[in-house]
Amino acid sequence: MNLVKKQIPITLAFFIGMFMWLQNYLPNHDVQEIYRTINLWSLIIIGFTLIVGIYSLLNHHAQKIKRKTPQWGFSVVVYIAMFTMVGAGLIDSKHMEAGGPLMWLFDNMQVPMQSTMFSILAFYIVSAAYRAFRARTKEATILLVTAIVVMLGRVPIGEVMFGKGLPVFTEWLLATPSMAAQRGILLGVGLAAIATALRIIFGIERTYMGGGGD
C-alpha cells in the first residue's frame, strides 16, 4: 500500500518535474508538444481544485445557516450572490464578453466593491504609518524619509514644492539603492526557489502531499 500511497506519486513528481525542467533545453517539436500538453493538463487539474475551495466555502456558510449562528443571514447572502453570478454566466449567451449580464454584474458590483475595499486601506495605512514610522531609530528614519520622498517625488506637487531635483532624486533612489536591495532579495529568492524545486523533484520535500496516512 505504501507503493500506491507514497512511492508512485513521488515517482510521478520526479518524471514530470524532470521533464518540465529539461524541456527548456530541448527545442524539439515533439518535446515542446508534450510540454504544452502537460501545461494544459495542469490547468485542467487546477480547475478541479476550485471545486474543493467552493465546497469548503459553501460548507462553512451552510454550517452557519444550519446552526443559526449570530448573523447567519449574511451566509445566505454569500449563497445568493454566488449562485446569481453563476446563473448570470450560464444564461449569458455572450459568456465573458462585455454586454452580457455576467459582465454587467462584474462591472457594477465586483469592480466597485473591490476597488473600494482596497481604497479603504488608504485611511488605515496612514494611521499604521504614524504608529510604525515614528523616527525612533536610524533605520526607521531612513524608511520614513524614503517613503515621503517617493510619495512627493512621483506627484506634481513635489516638484512644485521642492523643484525639479526631487523627481530626479526619486528616480535615482528607485533605480539605484532600492534596486540594489531588491536584487539582493531576488537573488536569494531565486536560489531558494531552485533549491525547493529540486527538493520536490527528488522527493526530499514531501510536505505538499499533506496527511492521509503514510
Binding site: 449562485f83 453570478m85 455576467l102 458590483m109 465586483q110
Partner: peptide, 10 residues
Amino acid sequence: HLYVGISVGY
C-alpha cells in the same frame, strides 16, 4: 458577504 459571493461566482 456579497463581495465574497460575487467574487467566487465570477
